[in-house]
Structure formats: C-alpha cells, structure tokens
C-alpha cells in the first residue's frame, strides 16, 4: 500500500518528538532521583537510594501525597456530579440549544487558568464578594475565613477548572450511544430510570472513566491553585516538588517525588484503560 520510505517519513517526526520531549526528560529525572546534593549545594552524581529512603523516613511526604490524592478525589467526585447531568441534559434534552450550551461550557477553557484562580480570590476573600453579601444579609457577622486560603478553596477552584474536562468525554460517549438501543429499551417497556440505569449509564462508562482520569490526574499534579488559594493547610505534593526544585535546591529529592508521582499516574492510566476496554461498547 504505502512505500517504506513514506512510512518511515511519517513515523520519524512523532518518534523524534516523543524521544526528545518525553523519554529523555523522564530518563534524566530518573537519573537525578538517585543523585544527591553536597553540603556546598552542588548536585553530586553519585548513585544512591538516599532520596527514596528519605521519602519513607520523613512522614511529611506520604502525608502530603495522601492529602493531594484526597483533594484530587474530591475534585473528581464533584466534577462528575456536575459534569454528568450537564452532559446528559445537553445530549438528550437540550434540542436546538445544544450548540449554544456546548459553547458556553467550552468557552471558560479559553480563559487563562491564572485569571480564573485570581477571580476566585476576589470572590472568596475576607473582603470578597461572597463574604460581603453574607454580611450584608446578616447571615454571618464576621467574614468566613475558611472560604479562602483553605483546602475548600482549592477543591472549589479545581472543580471549576476541570469540570469541562469531565463533561467533554461524557458528552462524546453519550452522543455515540445509538438511539435505537434507547428506543428498544423503551419499546420493551422499561421505565426511563431503568433505561438510564441499564442502557445509557453502562454505555457511557468509558466517557466517565476518561473524564474522571483527566480530573484526578490533572488536579493531583496541580500547584497553582494550592499556591494561590490553598493557604498554610492546603499544600499539595506539587508545591513540595516546586519548592525542592526552587528555593530548597534539592533536585534529586524533587526528582524522586516526581518519579513516584509518575509511577502512580501511569498505574492509574493503565488501570482505567483496562476498565474502559471492559466497558466499551462493541
């Protein structure tokens, strides 16, 4: 069909891309994670397992990782709760307004992440929109402190940012469900809830899994939201990595954490892919 020259010409650029921008950096990261920093703050290329031992020795690292996973799980759950009904409504009930609504969901994706994070700051702050309103209507007498600089603010912002990422794959999978299957279910006398439960939901599981993976992985590795809105108790694992690569100047330890994160994410992707295959409609 295609000549060999054509085939290699078409595979080389992506191969080059993957090797240069993916494999090499990861290999470097892997190497760094076995090196160390001398007291004079110079990275020494001496192979050892000290960094990984450090991760197990200092209880802070697993604790922060667990907290990050908790935050990511909350974000995923909330984004699913918001994204699924929205996608379902758009796919089934929106009719002619479908395209308009679709655009409205997607447009925020074009707004810079930073702008959206700062927007939440002005809404949630002590002098912010929400606290001013609450005090105006005498619902509270003092500004509510937990709204900003807290894990709550991080979960809220990340949910806002990643809900479209959950919505899109779910919407796509709902759109791909053949109408005849839904009609068959109805013709056979299933009430709407049962049709949803036994036909639509199972067929949309691949979309749900894809969306949930997006939301979980992206929020797990997020560092801007906790940096800007997290406050002293909302630090996530990426903030620790940023600090290790920055002010603390401990690239090896930072690499070790990053590598563990990478393994975690790859395992997760592997798992969800297996699940998606099991649920996919064929």
């Amino acid at each position: 069909m295609f000549s060999r020259a054509y085939k290699s010409a078409i595979t080389l650029p992506p191969l080059f891309w993957v090797a240069t921008f993916l494999l090499t950096p990861y290999a470097l990261l892997f190497c760094y994670s076995f090196w160390s920093v001398s007291p004079a703050q110079i990275i020494v290329r001496q192979w050892n397992l000290e960094n990984y031992r450090e991760l197990l020795r200092v209880s802070m690292y697993p604790a922060v990782l667990l907290r990050s996973m908790r935050i990511a799980a909350s974000v995923t759950a909330l984004a699913l709760l918001l994204g699924y009904p929205l996608a379902y409504y758009l796919s089934v009930h929106a009719g002619t307004r479908k395209h308009l609504l679709y655009q409205l969901v997607v447009i925020p994706l074009w707004v810079s992440y930073l702008v959206r994070a700062y927007a939440w700051k002005t809404i949630l702050g002590s002098d912010g929109v929400l606290n001013t309103l609450l005090q105006y209507f005498h619902i509270t007498h003092h500004p509510l402190g937990f709204l900003l600089y807290s894990p709550f603010a991080v979960v809220l912002t990340l949910t806002h940012i990643y809900t479209p990422f959950v919505f899109l794959p779910i919407y796509a999978s709902l759109e791909h469900i053949p109408r005849r299957l839904v009609e068959a279910s109805q013709d056979l006398g299933a009430p709407p809830l049962e049709t949803f439960w036994r036909v639509i939901l199972p067929l949309s599981i691949p979309g749900v899994l894809a969306g949930a993976t997006f939301a979980f992985v992206l929020s797990l590795g997020d560092f801007l939201a906790p940096l800007l809105l997290g406050g002293p108790s909302g630090v996530m694992i990426s903030n620790v990595v940023v600090s290790l690569f920055g002010a603390a100047y401990n690239w090896p330890l930072g690499s070790a954490i990053s590598f563990c994160m990478l393994l975690l994410v790859v395992a997760l992707l592997f798992l969800t892919e297996r699940l998606e295959k099991r649920w996919s409609f064929s």
């Binding site: 802070m60 604790a63 002293p232 108790s233 630090v235 903030n239 603390a248 100047y249 401990n250």
Partner: peptide, 17 residues
C-alpha cells in the same frame, strides 16, 4: 553552615496540615 537542614525544617513546617 547548615542551610539545607534549615530549609528541610522549614519545608516540613510549610507542608504540615
């Protein structure tokens, strides 16, 4: 002289709940 140790302590404080 032990700046790295100081930084370690400070990082632990920052990351704690």
């Amino acid at each position: 002289p032990r700046r790295a140790k100081y930084n370690e302590i400070w990082n632990e404080v920052k990351a704690a709940q």
